[in-house]
């Protein structure tokens, strides 16, 4: 299975080839050689050996750390040791559990930055209207910027088909049992997706307000979609996602007259979790508020293009 997500069952489906690119071959490496040697002998000799190794590893670790660990928040309280563990038999690792995903996300981010592509990671619970909002947005943006879409769902390529119906290139990732997209899957999708320089990449994550919060894909921003048919306390119930997001779209605003949804309370809850969150009230159906969203995307595109241009060799 994959390093972070169990996406041994994931497949990438490009629309041109229904059989897709099941890429289980990529995932076998991490578990393929755990038991190369029998270890019945190890009890009588392993003390000296592991002692040496522990020292060796400390150097090795420092080196690897610099390269693979761009998003380190620093370690917790120093000197935590579990009682009962003998120090000479300890191999220090000290790496973030998500360090591999973060390294792959950083690689995706570099790739997108070089192209000047502005990438958004759309997250929400299922049924928030994410795909409808996306279809409406790409329809409005189609003549302004080159667009591409990566669709993540556990099963079916229905969403990618909806996107392709607008004429925009879309790749479907089916995560199988996986509950979120990870940077590894997105990297593979980028291999197959024609990305024009200076365009916009929308990544529609698996409908899930919990797990996708933890997995950086290499996007510029996470956009969380919350619909007014959900509770106004959702940001408090699922704080991680709202804390991770940069923009919140409060969708289905056309339904507000029919609901007892307290917009002000919802916004206050969201800002309590994340004081820096930007919030727009929108309706994918009527188009209300979408102008501001399109402007925000336009500003992001301009910035991505300018950054790529500045970074390009003269």
């Amino acid at each position: 299975m994959c390093t972070v997500c169990g996406c041994g069952e994931a497949s990438v489906e490009t629309g041109t080839n229904k059989a897709g690119h099941a890429h289980t071959h990529d995932h076998t490496h991490s578990h393929s050689h755990p038991h190369e040697h029998g270890h019945g002998h190890s009890h009588s000799h392993d003390h000296d050996h592991t002692h040496d190794h522990a020292h060796e590893h400390i150097h090795d670790h420092d080196h690897a750390h610099d390269h693979t660990h761009p998003h380190d928040y620093g370690s917790g309280p120093a000197g935590v040791h579990v009682p009962g563990l003998s120090q000479e038999r300890i191999v220090r690792i000290e790496r973030d559990i998500l360090s591999k995903n973060d390294a792959l996300a950083a690689a995706n981010r570099v790739r997108l930055a070089e192209l000047g592509v502005f990438a958004l990671n759309l997250v929400s619970s299922p049924g928030s209207g994410k795909t409808s909002l996306l279809v409406r947005t790409i329809t409005d943006l189609a003549d302004k910027f080159p667009l591409a879409v990566i669709e993540g769902d556990q099963q079916t390529s229905n969403d990618a088909a909806r996107i392709r119906a607008t004429g925009v290139a879309a790749i479907q990732i089916n995560t199988g049992k996986g509950c979120h997209l990870d940077a590894h899957m997105v990297g593979h999708a980028l291999d197959d997706l024609p990305l024009a320089a200076g365009g916009v990449l929308f990544i529609e994550n698996v409908g899930n307000l919990v797990c996708p919060a933890a997995f950086d894909l290499g996007e510029a921003y996470k956009v969380v979609v919350l619909s007014v048919t959900e509770g106004e306390d959702k940001p408090l119930k699922y704080p991680d996602m709202f804390a991770a997001a940069d923009l919140m779209l409060l969708n289905k605003s056309d339904l507000l007259p029919h609901l007892e949804f307290d917009v002000a309370a919802c916004v206050a809850n969201a800002l309590r979790v994340n004081p820096r969150l930007k919030i727009l009230q929108v309706s994918a159906r009527t188009g209300e508020g979408l102008g501001a969203f399109l402007d925000w995307i336009g500003a992001g595109v301009a910035m991505a293009r300018a950054t790529a241009k500045a970074a390009a060799p003269a």
Partner: peptide
């Protein structure tokens, strides 16, 4: 997924240290 990542890091370290 996190447990998979933990095992992955452990296997890397185990390999590097024999």
């Amino acid at each position: 997924a996190l447990a998979e990542s933990v095992i992955d890091l452990v296997e890397d370290a185990a390999r590097a240290n024999g």
